[in-house]
Amino acid sequence: MTGVLVVDDDPHLLKVLKIALEANGYTVTTAADGRSALLAVTQHPLELIILDLGLPDIDGTTVIRRIRSWNRVPVLVLSARHTSDDKVEALDAGADDYLTKPFGPDELLARLRALLRRASEQHQEPVITTDSFTVDLANHRVTRDGNDVRLTPTEWNVLELLVRNPEKLITHRQLLSEVWGPAYAKDSNYLRVYMAQLRRKLEPDTGNPRHLLTEAGIGYRFQP
């Protein structure tokens, strides 16, 4: 079970988040202020922290800095503060991501999955090999027939998400949200363009792809 600490001084929000996260398989610890949060980090095995900035005793940014002095657990900030300065300050203090209130539960869960995935990837950067091309995730390198394949940053991001989830169907919405951001979740034209480019660069037969497969109307799948 993945341990998550939720820190917020709003008891209703704490309850809602606890129910939603537990329903999705997380083990949840809650704290209503900064001191309780810092204590909880020392007492519970945690894979992720969800933290409000506006705490009653210690500012959330200070809590992040104190945690970062000895622990690298990913931190997702939740806050009603909307200015860029607040976001930059939290990120500079060591937060890994920032979600502004109000937010939807689907976006929150997607952010959590992305943070946990990145944390896991820091310990394992595999090389994925197919009969057509090889992807070296650690070195951000793609080769085909022994030659380097030049990808744009966006092409790489699309390919990386697919190859990290072999044989798993990745929906249009998930790809768009994770590569371009939630605001682009319905702009599937982006995907068609970039998938066509990737197939031209990587597939032996672009009209009959073997590795970058389309699930009509749903999404894409990487077949090793």
Rank of each mutant, 00 (worst) to 15 (best):
E121K: 00
T27K: 07
E47D: 15
Q174M: 13
H211E: 10
T2M: 07
L17N: 04
L48H: 03
K18P: 02
H44Q: 13
T171L: 10
G104W: 01
L108K: 02
I64R: 03
D9K: 03
L176W: 03
T214W: 01
P209A: 08
L76T: 04
T42H: 11
K18F: 00
E22N: 09
V75L: 06
D97W: 02
T130I: 02
R118E: 15
L202S: 11
A183W: 04
T30W: 01
A138K: 14
I64L: 03
I64H: 05
L176V: 06
W180P: 04
L175C: 07
L161D: 07
R117D: 09
L162P: 12
T2L: 02
V75M: 04
T214K: 13
L202C: 11
R144I: 07
L51D: 05
N165S: 15
K101L: 04
S120E: 12
R150V: 15
D106A: 14
R141T: 15
A110H: 00
T2W: 00
V135Y: 02
S188I: 13
A20G: 09
H82T: 14
R68P: 10
A110S: 14
P56I: 05
A93L: 02
L108R: 07
I50D: 03
D131M: 05
P45H: 08
A90E: 04
T130L: 04
R68A: 08
T171G: 12
A119V: 00
P126Y: 06
D145Q: 14
T27D: 12
E215C: 05
S79T: 15
Q122Y: 02
R118A: 14
I67Q: 04
D85Q: 09
R210V: 04
M1K: 06
H140V: 14
V135S: 08
K186I: 07
A23N: 13
V193M: 06
L159R: 10
P153L: 07
V88G: 03
H140E: 15
L38T: 11
S84Y: 00
V73D: 08
N208L: 04
L78I: 13
L14A: 09
G219I: 04
L14N: 04
T214E: 12
R117V: 09
L91A: 06
P182V: 07
R150H: 13
I218A: 12
A95P: 05
L202G: 10
W156S: 10
M1Q: 02
S177H: 01
P209Y: 02
E22I: 02
G60N: 08
P105G: 09
A37G: 11
L38I: 11
V142C: 06
A80C: 06
G34V: 08
D92W: 00
V28D: 01
G3W: 01
F103M: 10
L169F: 01
D8C: 08
V6I: 09
H172D: 14
